[in-house]
Design a protein around this nucleic acid. Sequence first.
DNA 1: AAGAGGCCCTGATAGC
DNA 2: TGCTATCAGGGCCTCT
Length: 287
Amino acid sequence: MPELPEVEIVQQSLSKNIKGKKINRVLVKNRNLRFKLKPYFENKLKGQFISNIQRFSKYIIIMLKNKSFCVIHLGMTGTIHIIKKKKKSLLTNTSFYHSPILPKKHNHIEFFFDDIKLIYNDPRRFGFFLFIKDKENLKNVFKNYGPEPFDKKFNLDYLVNFLKGKKKDIKGFLLDQKFVSGIGNIYASEILYSSKINPLTPAKKLKKSQLRNIIKSSKEILYKAIKEGGSSIRDFKNTTGDTGGFQKKFKVYGRDKKNCKRLKCLGIIDKIIQSNRSTFYCKICQK
DNA sequence: AAGAGGCCCTGATAGC
DNA sequence: TGCTATCAGGGCCTCT
């Protein structure tokens, strides 16, 4: 589900809501996520203070005051919900949580704070939580990941060198996290449309001017998506249950058989399958 | 080494 | 109404 912009929105929201706070309790209702949660997971987090929240690629990194980390990946359908704790009820003398937007099923993990609780929901369970004991081990988690599109390292020389002698098409590389981190299936199509490049083009055949376009478009598209609060198709919501707005600005994704939006282009958007993922593009203006 | 394909899951939707 | 098939924003693993 979430690509870099959606994860960025979640990270921003977590920073606002749980930074500096103490994790009073962790409740795991289902350990069987993409990777089975370790038996010690809850105990390692319990009682710890959150010093900072960062994002790398599609990962959320919760930094704890004792220099350990909790790394979260949302997979395809993971969402994080922040629920405010209501004051103690005068009638029952117990505090309770209530949220009309919280899904009823698939709430697998809960973090309790003094004033709120955080709930991880994930129907398909492709997401995961990791406890990482120190900085050294954190580096290890990301050792196979290429630079983000915003990184200075994602430059013309890097692209030329990386793609040299390889056979895959450019769409395949944009999805390859070893090449560039954070781009997923939606934004890959959008970036290639913006760059006017046919997704089937073997990457090594791209001209330098085209590679420059890809670098520029990647940054632009992702920045715009973040500004719009991410994209909500099917189930992406931010932690307060609001949907993002960038899906309204998709030029090609999900627009199969519709008209190309480029001025004066008479093309029809086509949907093809590349390595088992759908790709949307305009045959006329993407060369 | 690089690339293709299978697989981990549930839910929404389309077609019969 | 209910069945079956297909598809979905990710990425790891295995095989060639």
